[in-house]
Structures are given as structure tokens and as C-alpha cells.
Amino acid sequence: MSHPIPIAGDFLSLLAAHNATPFSGGNSERAPVQTQATTVFAFHYRDGVLMAGDRRATAGSVIVTDQVEKILQLDASSLLAIAGVPATAFEMAKVLQTSFEHYRRSQLQPLSLAAKVRALARLLRENLPMTIQGIGIVAPLFAGLDTSVTPHAPRIFFYDPLGAQFQAVGFAGSGSGAPAIRSILSFQERFATPPPSTMTRDEAVRFALRLLMVASEFDSATGGINLAAGTFATLMALESEGIIPIDGTRQAEILGS
């Protein structure tokens, strides 16, 4: 990646000028077994978007950890859900976090939602050589606030590993447990009561936790919820006023109520 003409406020240009471009390394033909992060999803509820992820990372049939944070806060109004190879995904998150803040501070205005969505697409495209070789694949979800409308509206975007971006109308999921979750979300929205889009935040949290429980029954790479062990999901709500993290204590209260 090279930028012959520096772009004002563009952090990737700054990195290129200092020969510090991420995702530029080659890779070995004999790659090790990759650690993978699954399962993440996001859906619209009455007052915003809920983004959720289990906390399991696997490498083949090995459970690497059940303590991964897959929902990452990029700035005051953007969330990234990572599915795929954490090594690449965490680096992308760090690039985006620094880029968004660098732009906001240097240009004295926040980056638009469209530019944030595109920034992630650019990173995925930069990662294309790794993706094609089957190493370092990332299929993330992104949620951000559309500030061009009043009140500010949370939006969900999903990507393919090559960088194509799509806006999700009701929900999106990624990772190995996502098919089960997407099926339930679709059924609930079309035929059941209440549809997710009308749920309150607490209802949405309870629903998201139950979705992860179900997904973990069909997918060994999805960690699920373990009340006895105190293992919960990573949950963050994005509403017009900003991000609301929902910690394990609150999740336990909602599940128990």
C-alpha cells in the first residue's frame, strides 16, 4: 500500500509515510493451524442495535480460550464484531480505532459513517493476499451511528472477506455459529412475537443470550453462556446517544429476571 499524495487526516497515509503499513507482510506456504474467533451477530431492537459475540476462540478442534472479547469499541459511536482470525482482526481494529480518533482530532470533526464503513472495506481489501491463501480471513460486522438523520440512527453493516460491504436491514451474523442464529432471527422477525425490532433493550439482551445458547448446541466453536462458570457474552448496545456496554453482572440479572 502506498499513497504518493498524503491525504489530510488519513492515518493509513501517515503509516505509509513511516513505512509502518500493516497487512503488508508475506506469508508461509506452511501456515500453522489458525486460531479462529466465532460467533458474532447484530440486530436492530426498538431503540438501537445490539451487537453480541460469544467468547470462544478455537484452533482446529482445540479450544484456545473462552475469554475473547469479539465486540470492540472503535470510538464513541462505532462497534466492530470480529469473526475469523483474531490476529488480523485485532490489528484491523487497532488501525480503525487509531484512524478514527486521529481524523477526529486532527480535522476537528468526526469521520462520517460512510467513511468509517469504507475504511474497514479498505483494510479487508489490503488483506486480500492473505485471504486468498486461506490465512488471516476476517469477516467482520460493523455498527455505527448515522449522524445525517435526527435522532442519530444506528446502522449495521456486514462484509465479505474481500471487502464488499452491505447494509443489514434487520440483522447480520458472521462466524460458524451464525447460520443457526440468522435462521432464528429471521423466523422471529417474520413469524414470532415480539419481533426483535420491537424489543426493549433488556428483551433484546435476553434474546441475544438465548441465541448464543442455541448456537452453542449446534456449533462446537461457539462458546455459549455458562451461568455456573460465570461465562457470558460480550454485548454492546448502540443507541442514538452512544454505546452502552452490558457486562456479565447485568446479563446475569436479565437472564435471571
Binding site: F11, L14, L15, A20, K94, T98, H102, R105, S106
Partner: peptide, 13 residues
């Protein structure tokens, strides 16, 4: 200001 912001964000990254 721009120099300071570029320097510290590069450092933080």
C-alpha cells in the same frame, strides 16, 4: 498541532 497529533497517534499505534 498537526505535528503533535501525527506523532502521538503513530506512537500509540
Amino acid at each position: 498541532r498537526q505535528t503533535a497529533i501525527d506523532t502521538v497517534h503513530l506512537e500509540a499505534f
